[in-house]
Amino acid sequence: MTHAARRGNATFGVLLVLIGVAIAILNAVALRPGAGTQWTQRTEHVHTLEDGTEVRWTEHEAVSVKEGREMAAADQDAAPLLSRTLGLWGAAILTLCIFSFLLGDNPLYKAAEAIVVGASAAYWMVIGFWETMVPNLIAGLFPEWTRSNFMPRLSEDASVDFLLLIPLALSVLLLLRLAPKIGWISRWPTAFIIGVFCGLRFISSLEADFLSQIGPTIKPLIVIGENGFDLESSFSNIVLVLGTLACLVYFFFSVEHKGAIGKVARSGIWMLMITFGAAFGYTVMGRIALLAGRFEFLFDDWLWLIDPKDAHPAQAFLQTIAPMLM
């Protein structure tokens, strides 16, 4: 593809996203008023502390537009929430930006990709901090402080665990990898991580992936059922047992695959091809299911063009034109 063609595609991708957003705005204003609105039911919480201070906060629970309007009509505290509506519009626009890559690389796709990179790195850091470091490290080293700030349900008997100074020291050493001159010292914690992982995987792989796979493979090749010889079960068992053995022979590279061994190995390849074909089929199905989910998000949650969950009060677009066509 020439540079000019690539540039043309990029411009076309950006234009298409902008046109899509403009149509969505028009749709939400004129065609399907309120499309993309997010409704919530509010619950007010008021607590009076020991020193007389009042603490208040509002909890929002997502409800469908239809439920929300019914609740509002029944004087229950439900209303559209601007922040969630903006969030949904933002998510939809980001989705379009990613899809624009199908037309070629463009600035909007690159921006969305940059957001994915930054947000995912921070996302997993936050998860690691609150779910692993706070309960396992900080709570062990500073139990009182953690109880009064982050984990009020932490046991009153929890005492300082000085052994946790070891992982703390290893953590500091690991972070020294960012310092070029003394980066070598991060080999210590890295070696610890690798050692523990090897120890865990050595046992678990032999137990779960090796021994537990052999047991169910040992099956009778001739199955005699209540009505005598069971052809279907016998054939299935023969395929399973001999197929597994043939694949294992194919993986055995210490012997040259010639003669009888070569023929068995070749049948092992056939079994593996069937396995890869099934894996490919399932991968395609999984991706298409995800794609359908994204289209449902765009056409149902955002644009209200379809309404499979009967969540929008206004008659959906396709439901409106369907009777006209019939």
Binding site: A121, A122, W124, M125, I127, G128, F129, E131, T132, M133, N136, L137, L164, I166, P167, L168, L170, S171, L174, L175, R177, L178, P189, F192, I193, V196, F197, L200
Partner: peptide, 16 residues
Amino acid sequence: TVWFNILAAVAFILGG
């Protein structure tokens, strides 16, 4: 194992 989990979480900080 707890130490391993702590170090794995710190590895995310290193990545960041």
